[in-house]
Simulated scan of single mutants.
Amino acid sequence: MIYAYASLTITKPEALAAYREKAAAALALHGGKIEAASADLHAIDGVPPIPDAAALLSFPDRDAALGWINDPALADVHALRRDAGASDIILLG
C-alpha cells in the first residue's frame, strides 16, 4: 500500500463539484481510494500554508498511483481538478 497527499486551493467551486462526481471512480480504475478528505484543516505544528481542502489517497503500489495520474483516459477528470484551482499531489513513498 502506498499513499498520496492531495492539497487543493479552490478558486472554482463548480469545477471541484464536477471533479468530485468523477474522482472516486477514476481512482478505482487503478485500485485507488480516498482514505480521508476534509475542508476543516488545522496546523498542529509549524506554520504551513493551509489549503482549502486536502485528501489522503491510497493505492496498491507506486505503479498504480503513477498509472492513475498518467492515464490518458482520465485526462478530462484531472483537468477538472486542475481547473478548480491549485492542486498539489505528493506521493508518500
Rank of each mutant, 00 (worst) to 15 (best):
A28F: 02
S7W: 12
S87Y: 05
G67Q: 04
A28W: 05
R82G: 13
A73R: 11
T9S: 05
P60M: 08
A25P: 01
A17Q: 02
I2V: 14
P13Q: 05
E14F: 00
E21W: 01
D76G: 09
I34K: 06
A4N: 07
A55L: 07
K22V: 08
I69N: 07
T9H: 15
D88C: 15
D40W: 13
G46T: 02
A36Q: 06
L57F: 04
D71R: 08
A25M: 04
A73N: 07
I69L: 06
A17R: 11
R62K: 13
A23F: 00
L92R: 12
Y5M: 15
A24W: 02
I34D: 05
F59P: 07
A37K: 11
V77Y: 00
R81V: 10
D40H: 15
K12A: 11
L56H: 04
D76A: 03
R20K: 01
L57Y: 08
L74I: 01
V47K: 09
V47S: 11
A79Y: 06
A43L: 07
R20T: 06
A28T: 08
R20N: 07
D45W: 14
L66F: 09
M1R: 04
S7I: 14
A18R: 01
K12I: 14
R81M: 00
A25V: 07
D88E: 09
A23R: 04
A24L: 09
S58R: 11
G67Y: 04
E21G: 00
I44W: 10
E21C: 02
K33A: 13
G93M: 13
H30Q: 02
I50G: 00
K22M: 06
A86Y: 03
L41T: 09
G93S: 03
H42N: 10
I10G: 05
A64M: 05
L92K: 12
Y19E: 10
I69W: 06
Y3P: 11
A15I: 07
R81D: 04
P13M: 00
S7C: 14
P60E: 08
A53M: 10
T11Q: 03
T11F: 11
W68Y: 02
L91I: 14
P60A: 11
L56F: 04
D63S: 08
A54W: 01
A17C: 07
I2P: 02
H42W: 12
H30W: 05
R20V: 08
I34Y: 12
S87A: 11
S58Q: 05
A25C: 10
D76C: 04
A6T: 09
L92H: 04
I2M: 12
T9Q: 03
R62A: 07
G85D: 03
D71S: 01
L8V: 15
A79G: 06
L27F: 03
F59I: 13
W68H: 09
A65H: 09
Y5A: 09
D45T: 15
R20Q: 04
Y5Q: 13
E21V: 12
L56D: 02
A26G: 11
P48H: 13
I10P: 01
P48G: 11
L80E: 01
K12Q: 04
P72V: 07
L27G: 02
E21R: 10
G67T: 11
A53Q: 13
L29Q: 06
K33L: 03
D76V: 12
Y3H: 13
L80I: 00
L74P: 02
E14G: 09
D63M: 03
P60V: 14
A75Q: 09
L27T: 03
A37Q: 10
